[in-house]
Amino acid sequence: MTPQIAVFLVLAAMAVAGAVNLILQRHPIHSALSLIVVMVALAGLYLLQGAEFIAAVQIIVYGGAIMVLFVFVIMLLNAGEEERTNLSRMARYVGVPLGVVFLLEVAYWIGRATSHMAQSSPQAVSTRELSTLLFREYVFPFELTSFLILIAILGALVLARREDSD
């Protein structure tokens, strides 16, 4: 077992454990904290693939900014423990088996597909190459995302304004 695979297994186990814990926890703040574990583990996986820029962005944007927002929202709403209702019980008995089936199916097909694939060594994409790609070839969708964000801001404005109109 090469050290890469060992590191991968540790990080992957962390990510999966964090994700499972996210769902199992009943208090939203605990779920949010588990999400941080997932984000950081993912950043480690990106680093392992030689994508240091993506890894850094993952930590700064997801692990930092977005998680702060999550925690803010949970505190502002003062969200307590989630309650179990009949519907959530149904979700457990129907949703969990369905999710497991979907997971196994995806795992099976990906396993089958990749076993036929040629071993391709991960190419390290430098930040320079990435930015060239982003600002030359993909400049159109890149600019479009600013419109997407503008729509989201406008939406936040519309939703927030209703409070003071009451």
């Binding site: 479009l144 997407l148 406008l154 519309v158």
Partner: peptide, 25 residues
């Protein structure tokens, strides 16, 4: 002609739709 571009277009129309659906406050 490319999936990511199509995806961003889809999200632009979807997110605006969600907000418009809630417009009768």
């Amino acid at each position: 002609q490319e999936l990511l571009t199509g995806f961003i277009g889809l999200e632009m129309s979807s997110i605006a739709s969600y907000i418009l659906a809630s417009y009768r406050r």
